[in-house]
Design a protein around this nucleic acid. Structure first.
Lengths: 149, 149
DNA sequence: GAAATATGTTAGCCATGTCTAACATTTATT
DNA sequence: AATAAATGTTAGACATGGCTAACATATTTC
């Protein structure tokens, strides 16, 4: 596979570090489904970019900037995931697609998605009536009734 | 840039061929913002995959399979574009983001997006009430009124 | 604590897709 | 038709990110 990149690594390191406070090369390799040397190589790059601190055979830790960058990626992932779920994309597929698309979302779009998800989640009526209509529309291909929205 | 790939080329060839019925290497290069040799090289690949027919210094034409593949990419692009526009992402940014994400959408997700867009577009009330509420929510950060959806 | 196992590193290769420079072919211009 | 301009090709380089094989260091386990 050729899709992984700096952002995937940051995300993986962040996730793997939860609790432990650091990541091992192996953890990252497992998380991303790549081999150890690929991780070793990438760590040099990440270090040179100031995203991680680590020395040979040691623990990988995100720097402050690394955490910031990781959170940004994870934020995109989460928001895409929420959107896809709202649109009734099955969980597993939503996960995969969110993962694949997260690198390509501009911040403007992210902002809009955030607003949309908030709009849905904060709606006083849960779930919002129109969403129920959407569910119905998905199942039957037509509106539940001609004058609801 | 490193993001272009077979799918981008197919899309570009399809678009450029509209009307003329074929594409020149230069057209494609301009459309994708790459140099001529990059296109030459990719054409060999596309030809070997059976997506285009073309011979040196000649015209590039999509094969039947090429057209099919191109249309699939373009479909994804369009549906993403529509979704982003519904969510009030500015046109230019929606274009760029749709382009960047189109390669990563699974067909299941595409199906859902198609349904969602259809749900919005076919709604008897135009624009749907909830969408107007969303607009309001975007502008003011709150619902227009406590009992509408 | 010595041997076995697990983890990490280095070196070197592969594939993708980009580029420039040099050369080839077409097409347009005069 | 000869020259100039535009377009296309080839060769060779670079960067990214993946891999295997061989070696190095840690960690277990006995």
């Amino acid at each position: 596979m050729y899709r992984s990149s700096v952002e995937d690594y940051l995300e993986a390191i962040f996730n793997v570090s939860q609790g432990k406070g650091y990541a091992r090369i192996k953890d990252i390799a497992d998380a991303l489904n790549v081999k150890l040397p690929s991780v070793s190589k990438m760590m040099r790059k990440l270090k040179s970019k100031g995203f991680v601190s680590f020395s040979s055979y040691g623990k990988v830790k995100l720097t402050e900037n690394g955490v910031k960058a990781a959170k940004s990626v994870i934020g995109k992932h989460e928001i895409l995931l929420k959107l896809l779920k709202i649109l009734s994309v099955p969980d597993e597929i939503a996960q995969r697609d969110a993962c694949a698309m997260e690198h390509h979302l501009s911040s403007v779009t992210v902002d809009q998605l955030v607003k949309f998800v908030k709009f849905v989640e904060d709606n006083p009526v849960k779930p919002p009536k129109w969403l129920k209509h959407f569910d119905h529309f998905c199942k039957f291909g037509e509106y539940p009734c001609r004058d609801k929205e």
